[in-house]
Structures are given as C-alpha cells and as structure tokens.
Design a protein around this nucleic acid. Structure first.
Length: 897
RNA sequence: GGGCGAUUGGCUCAGUGGUUAGAGCACACGGUUCACAUCCGUGGGGUCACUGGUUCGAAUCCAGUAUCGCCCACCA
C-alpha cells in the first residue's frame, strides 16, 4: 500500500510516466491484432493517409493521431478485430523540393549529381528523416501496429504500383497524348490542377499594335489591329489574332494577316466565338502553346503551337533575340521595345487570377508536352455511385455534395511527373515507338508489338504522381495484388480519416483506384476533420509566430492534455481554434483525474472483507450516472461523435464523480458510526466506478488512465477485473439505470446547492457551521431528509439541522426546494441581503406556474402536442404547485411581491 | 461566375421542433476542511446576425438579407 501511495503522491508528471507507459504497451505487444480474429468480432480498420516522409510532426498530424487513436482504442476495447497501420508517404515533389534546398547548401544540384547520384542522396536523406515521424507518433500515444509499418516507396508498394498500372493499361484506361499541362518552372515538373493555388493578383493589361501585312509581307505602318494581353512575352509564340465573328469593327479584317513584332512571322486573323467583344480591344493574340483557351482555339483553326519557353521558363531558341532570358525579363524587354517602336498603345492595371505551385509558390506555366493520362470517367462514375448509394458515407454529410461536384467535373488524370524520386512508369519504348507496359519487375522481354528484344527497349523516364501510389494505400499495404491473409482479414477497411483539404487528392483517388482494382469500396466511412487554426481563426504560420508545436506542448503539459484539447469540443469538417486556455483545460483534467485516484487509493480501508449489502444513495446514484454515461459515450463513439463522447465522460468524471460522489463518499468512509462492512462497500464502489471511468476515458487519455490503472489494480484487483493492462481491458458495460436514486439524489443535491446559495447570498462566512431549519414538504420528504442529513450537513456545512421547524418562523431568505423549505438560522443582519433574492425566486416560481397553466389551457396544445409532452408539463405543474402551496403557508412580511 | 459552411454570453464551442438555451475559459465574491489552488463554492452575463413565413410551440424547419470564411472555375 505504501508503495502505491508514494507512486501517486505527486502531481501527475506526464514527462516521467508517458514513455514508460508506451514501452509497457510495446512490451505487451498490445497494438498488433491477434494472430486470428477474435470470434464473433467486428472488423475495425483505420485507413490513414500516411504523412510525408520529410515532414516533422505538426499540430495537424497530432490531430490525426488523436482522433484515430481514440477510435482504434475504443474498438480494441470493444473486442473488435482492429488494425491501424502506420507508414509514410514518399511525397515525390515535396521530398525533392526539400532535398534540392539541402543539396544547394552543399553546393550541389540535381544536374550536378545526376539521376543515380541524386537518388542515392535521397536514400540517405530518407534514412535521416523517416524515423522522425514515428518517434513523434509514439509521443502522442498512437497505438499503431508497428510490425506492419509501410513506406510508399518500399518494394511491396512498387509491385502494387506496377500491377495497378498494368491493369489500367490492359483495360484501355491509359493513354499517351500531347496536351497543355500545368508546369512548375522551379520544381521542373508537371503538377495537377489540385496542386495549383489560384490567387487574385494585380497585373497589367497592355494594348499592343500588330501591323497588318502588306502584299510583300512587310508591316503596314499605317494599318494595325490592337490586341490586349497580360502576357506580352508570349507573343513570341503567337500564331494568330482572333476576333469575334459578329464584330463589325473587325469583320473586314478576318482572313487578312498581321506581322508579328520582332520575329516577322505572318499571323492570320481568325474569327471565333470564344472572343469577348467587350473585353480589351475585342481582338486577342493567340498563343496555343502557352494558354489553354488559345490551345483549344488553335486546334479548331488548325494553328501551329510554338513553344517559346524552356523547362525553367526562359525564352528558348524560338524566341529570336530574346533567347535565354527569364520570362519576366523578356516581358520587360519586349514592352520596352514595343514602346520604342510606338506599338505600345496603352497599359492599365488589371485584376487577374494567377496560378502558383502549391509546393514552392512559383507562378506556373501552361506547357505543351506529351503526357501519360488515366481516363477517369469510368472510374469516377463508380466512385460517385458508391457515395450516392450509401456504400461509402462521408462525415460530415455535406461534403458528399462537394465530392459529387468534383467527381462530376473530373478531368483525365495526368499521372506522369518529370521528377526522379518516385515510382518510374513501367512502360518501355522500342526503337519504332511501340509501347510495352508490364508489371514484371525486370521489365519486358521484348516489344509486344514488333518483338524488339529487351536490350533495345528504353524505359519511360517519367515517374508517377505520388498520389498514384498513395491511392493504393488501403490495399497495397495489406499485400495486394496478392490474395494475402491480411487482405482477406482487413480489407475493405472501415474508416478513412483525414482532413477535408485532401478529399480530392486522396479520398477520391483511393475510391476510384480501390473500386477498379478490388471491386469494392476501400472503406465504408470517410471521416473528415477540420483544420486547426490559431486564436482569432487565423492560420497557424511560422511567420505569425502562432504555431503550436505538438512535441513542445507534450513536453510541457503531456500528450493526454493535448489530445483532450484536440478532440473535445470539435466537430468533423469544421475548423477548430486551438488556444492555450483550452490546452490548459486538458492538463487540468488529467490532473483532476490523477488526484481523484490519489484519494481513492489512499482511502482504502485496511480490511475489505465483507462488503455490506445495502448501497447508500450516493453509491446507487453514481452507478446510475455511470450507466447513463457509458450508454451515451458508446452511442457517441459509434456515431463518430468524438466530442460528444469526450463531453459525456468529462462531465461524469468531474461533476458527478469528483464534485458530488467523492464528497459524499467521504462522509461514509470517515463516519465514526460506520461499520467496517459499510465502509468496505462504499470504498469498493468508489474504486469500481473509478475503474470504469478509466476504461471510459482511456481512448482519449491513454497515458494517465493506464498509469492510474496500474496502481488501482495493485491496490484492489476487483476494481479493474484483474486485467493488468487497461489498453486490453474490455469497454465498460452499462448497468441498469436507477431512476429512483437519480431523483432522490437530485433532490438532495438541489437542497445542498440551495443552502450554499443562501449562505453566499447572505454573505455568511464560508467556513462557519450554521444551524439549518427545514420544513419538510411531506412526511415522505422528511424521511428522505433524515437519510440525507449525513450528506447535507458536511456538504452544505450546516449543523445542527432541525427537520421540524415551524413554517411560521420562515424568514424571507429561505430556499424552496423539492424536499421542503429551508433556511439558515443565523445572522439576521446578513439575512436581509438575501431577502431580495428569495423574493425573486418566489416570483420566478409563480411565473412558471402561470406559464404552464396558460399552456395547458390552450386546447390546441393539449390536442396537438404529443401526449408525452403534455403529461410532462402536467407533472411539472403539479410539482410546482406543491412548492407554491408551501410558500403560501408562511406569513409573508409586508406586502406581496 | 458557381457552390459550401458559419453567425448562440467577453473568448472557444455544445445544443436540428417541446421545461426557464448549456459547458469550459475569462470575470466578481467567498474559501488555511487531511485527492486536487492545475482546486472548491456561489454569482453576474445571451431579444441564439437580421427580416418574413410554417407550427399549439422555432436557436432548431422554410424563404430572403447581411457579414465572415472556405472550395471550385481556362476570359486574354
């Protein structure tokens, strides 16, 4: 006993206990699923988008871990067949962006290292960075199955990627085509629309004269057409000027030609509906290689597409005298030259939308290139149907509309990336340009079309978009494409948990690829959490200095406190503000729990032999509260309402257990008249309810509950079912509700509150023991009071208590409670200040009675409202009227109120 | 341009037709009781953004308005 007491003596020290607790879980192999699924169990598997390998843990990861760990621990305790599989994503573009900066400091570059050297350097970088996330997840208490940890660049993922691509290819869902794609000149790769951030910016709209061509092809200095553009540098790639076919101003010019400045190329003037007559001059320069609209228009009119930029967005050889200049330098130079020539007709500020690379912030370019595409329409159709028909549910539901809208407007997926770090596309070209796709690791033996031998084939250098391998995660991590036992046991998974910001990136792709490749929805529920924001709803950013570092926070207040702050009071899909007071609230709660446990452990009687049979009111009441809360918490967790669960458990622990039950139990535990048997039973109740409280809170606060559990099971195995590890203990079972106990206890606690209220309202000393006079409402209430006096006295700090007071003696400052009218027999001076309050309470009582009488007198209410509601109001009225009757028996001083 | 969400006490949020709208923090007052001052007790504070409608009854359902936020969108 002394050992355990000493363990609990200090304030909860998260820093000292958490690592030890986590190690105990690891030693017990508590996270991995059992060798075989428990009989009769349900499956609960979390699909988690793995964090980027390069990242260190930020508060968003902590949120993910807190939510998912809460879910998985709950289901584990329920006895479900659970799996939460950890891992990291190789994050092609992100990792290269980070590594490029690192090697730049070392005086190297992609070019200087070459592909092989660069990839070797990447491997070294991975070895440094890869363990970081894992160690941070341990700090948070994430109960992931480390034995199944995966990486999207490991061999098994590579196999899955090849198999997936081969199947898509064989199904005719892959094609190669020239297209205008979004290009990042800094990352030097294609990026998707989703990776492009559109920002409103102020640019300039220049008006430029294109002179008409004379017969001999020279520009006519007297005749021109003016075009408006925000990107003068692209004029080097112009291949036409377009006007609206119905525009009278230009009708005569259609079919004629202009001479392109600097390059002297002759461009036709074409007519096309695309042109907006009202914008600018009504004439547009057409650059098919550098603008999506122009590209489409160019195709309609058979125009040539001339690419004038290189992969770093410098003017290429097609740009004549401007070759080698950066696009913005070239813009300046071209504007200057046009101005000198008198061909710059005007310039004015112009609001426009500019695309930036999500990763590096560089302004992106539309770029003409040959790309690998996945035809997504048939995939999207199925993915859409799954959600529409409810086979996959999105929480919160309104995101289903967002998902549907995106799926309905989806474009084919350009999956190739011109990067090095990633899965290389398993396609080989023969000298004749035939394409061979294979899932064989060694590549094809020969060209499938012409039989050219392997030695003559060259593999595609492009790699896959990271999301291609990530999209396979739910099943590639379980052994797919092989029919492994894990795949059979854990797939399809249950809940896909992630932030709403990657609904399209990840969820949508997992759905499409999962349905196509495995013929089943990869998860039945998508749970989307919100984004964490700082005070005032602003984004957390390093520059603003309002970032909360989860590891620093764990060091300071403990992982449980952080988890509480992240999970309590938050709704899925809604952004949440994380503030210091909230974090402190979490810490206070862990501390409260710890101290309640200290009390219970320390209060254990020496002998616990034969607990008495009959439970006290506080015991019956707390067990009823416990039963109710277990029910509410269980329903909340089953409905993925983590905040509701947290609130229910918090209230039970703090308000019901600590504030009321423990205080009342102290009376019984310390009463000189109590027999050993009664003390034993009360203490056991306290210990058992604490045990269930720990089970209830374990998913949310795993460390502190596990720490307490160890001591509690040591002190009294009956309180913990003898299970040494809480993580393996069963979820508590809700006992029977006890409405009588709830009613009686509520009446008693109500009276205690009233008396406390009288005391403070009257300004009477908090510490003083004051006499209490009570006029019981009925003989039955008198009996109840008699039983409750032992709690009433200490909790309201009143003594002696006179249960036979005369109604006539009632002063103005009295409390009218369900059990009777009560007043403090003290200090007539102070009592005067309470008169006002007491009068107000009486008035309030009357107002309520009037309101309900009016309500019940309304025939349409009585007729139309449900009988249950009407009955409830009638009962309430009866109760109030009884209280009111008591009031009328007294003699009121002065006039009526 | 289209769509979505939010608006409840000073702050952060619960509360989707039925008592007198709740909690935590903050605030005020009181507290040296042997679990806890990271605590205990008591209290003040909200015409639930606005307007109209449906209903016996609306914070809750409907319509509109306002403000804020987010997502999507190839007008030079």
């Amino acid at each position: 006993m002394s050992t355990t007491n000493r363990e609990l003596a200090a304030r909860y020290d998260a820093g000292a206990t958490e690592p030890a607790v986590y190690q105990r879980w690891l030693d017990a192999d508590a996270f991995a699923p059992s060798a075989a699924p428990p009989t009769g169990s349900e499956r609960f598997v979390i699909t988690q988008p793995p964090p980027n390998v390069t990242g260190s843990l930020h508060i968003g990861h902590a949120l993910v871990a807190a939510i998912e760990d809460t879910m998985i621990r709950y289901h584990r305790m329920r006895g479900d067949d659970t799996l939460w599989l950890p891992g990291v994503d190789h994050s092609g573009i992100g990792a290269q962006f980070v590594l490029d900066k690192i090697i730049a400091d070392e005086g190297e570059s992609r070019q200087s290292l070459g592909r092989d050297g660069y990839l070797a350097r990447m491997q070294r970088f991975m070895e440094e960075t890869r363990p970081i996330i894992g160690s941070q997840h341990r700090r948070l208490g994430a109960s992931v199955d480390w034995s199944r940890e995966r990486f999207t660049m490991d061999d098994a993922s590579a196999r899955a990627v090849r198999a997936a691509f081969k199947r898509l290819w064989d199904a005719g869902l892959v094609y190669r085509a020239e297209a205008l794609v979004t290009w990042c000149p800094r990352c030097r790769t294609t990026i998707s629309d989703l990776e492009t951030i559109h920002r409103d910016e102020m640019g300039t709209l220049w008006t430029i004269r294109y002179h008409l061509a004379r017969e001999d092809g020279t520009p006519d200095p007297e005749a021109w057409i003016s075009v408006a553009t925000t990107r003068p540098e692209t004029l080097l790639g112009d291949t036409a000027v377009a006007v609206h076919p119905d525009d009278d101003r230009y009708r005569a010019l259609v079919g004629r030609e202009v001479v392109l400045p600097f390059l002297g190329r002759r461009l036709p003037i074409v007519a096309d509906d695309y042109v907006d007559r009202a914008f600018g001059t009504g004439a547009v320069k057409i650059t098919p290689a550098h603008d999506p609209n122009d590209y489409e228009l160019g195709k309609r009119h058979g125009l040539e597409a001339i690419d004038v930029l290189d992969e770093e967005a410098r003017i290429n050889a097609a740009g004549g005298e401007f070759v080698g200049r950066d696009r913005y330098e070239a813009r300046e130079a071209i504007i200057d030259r046009l101005r000198e020539n008198g061909d710059l007709e005007g310039e004015r500020p112009h609001a426009m939308v500019v695309g930036h690379c999500e990763r590096c912030g560089t302004v992106v370019e539309p770029r003409l290139s040959v790309q690998w595409f996945i035809r997504v329409a048939p995939l999207a159709e199925r993915a859409l149907a799954s959600v529409r028909e409810g086979r996959t549910r999105i929480v919160p539901a309104h995101f289903e509309k967002v998902y549907a809208h995106w799926m309905e407007n989806i474009h084919d997926w350009a999956v190739g990336r011109q990067l090095w770090w990633g899965h290389r596309i398993p396609a080989w070209f023969c000298p004749d340009g035939h394409v061979t796709v294979t899932d064989a690791e060694a590549g094809p033996d020969a060209c499938v079309e012409c039989g050219s031998p392997a030695a003559k084939l060259t593999q595609e250098t492009d790699i896959f978009d990271t999301w291609f391998s990530s999209g396979l995660w739910p099943f590639s991590t379980l052994g797919w494409p092989d029919a492994t036992p894990d795949l059979a046991r854990f797939y399809p998974t249950s809940v896909m948990e992630t932030g709403y910001d990657i609904l399209f990136f990840w969820v949508a792709r997992m759905m499409m690829l999962g349905l196509f490749l495995t013929d089943v929805e990869p998860f039945h529920t998508v749970y989307l959490h919100g984004m964490i924001r700082a005070e005032g709803g602003v984004k957390m950013s390093k520059t603003k200095g309002n970032v909360i570092d989860p590891i620093g926070m764990i060091d300071e207040i403990g992982a449980d406190a952080l988890r509480y702050a992240l999970v309590a009071g938050t709704a899925p899909g809604s952004d949440m503000r994380l503030t210091r007071p909230k974090l402190d609230g979490g810490r206070n709660f862990t501390n409260k729990l710890w101290n309640a446990a200290r009390f219970v452990v320390g209060a254990r009687p020496e002998r616990l032999a034969t607990p008495a049979d009959e439970a006290t009111l506080p015991e019956r009441w707390i067990r009823s509260r416990l039963a109710d809360t277990i029910g509410r918490a269980t329903r909340a967790l089953d409905g993925l309402d983590l905040a509701g669960y947290a609130a229910a458990a918090y209230d039970l622990a703090w308000s019901d257990y600590c504030d009321w039950f423990v205080e009342m139990a102290k009376v019984d535990l310390r009463a000189p008249d109590a027999g050993d048997d009664a003390v034993a039973r009360t203490w056991l109740t306290a210990a058992e309810v604490l045990g269930d409280l720990l089970r209830l809170l374990h998913p949310l606060l795993p460390f502190v509950t596990e720490s307490i559990w160890a001591v509690l099971t040591d002190v009294e195995p009956r309180a913990t079912g003898g299970e040494p590890l809480l993580i393996r203990a069963p979820w508590p079972v809700a006992g029977a509700a006890d409405p009588d106990a709830e009613r009686e206890a509520t009446a008693l606690t109500g009276l205690i509150r009233d008396v406390r209220n009288l005391r403070t309202a009257a300004g009477l000393p908090a510490g003083a023991w004051l006499p209490l006079h009570v006029v019981p409402a009925s003989p039955a209430d008198r009996a109840r009071l008699e039983a409750g006096v032992r709690y009433l006295g200490p909790l309201a700090r009143v003594r002696p208590i006179d249960l036979d007071a005369a109604a006539a003696e009632r002063p103005a400052a009295a409390a009218t409670s369900q059990l009777g009218v009560a007043w403090l027999g003290a200090d007539p001076v102070a009592a005067a200040t309470a008169t006002e309050r007491a009068a107000a309470r009486d008035a309030e009582l009357r107002a309520q009675v009037d309101r309900i009488r009016t309500l019940l007198a309304n025939p349409s209410f009585v007729d139309r409202a449900p009988a249950q509601v009407v009955a409830k109001e009638r009962g309430r009225l009866a109760d109030l009227e009884r209280q009111l009757a008591q009031l009328t028996t007294r003699s009121v001083s002065g006039g009526d109120s």
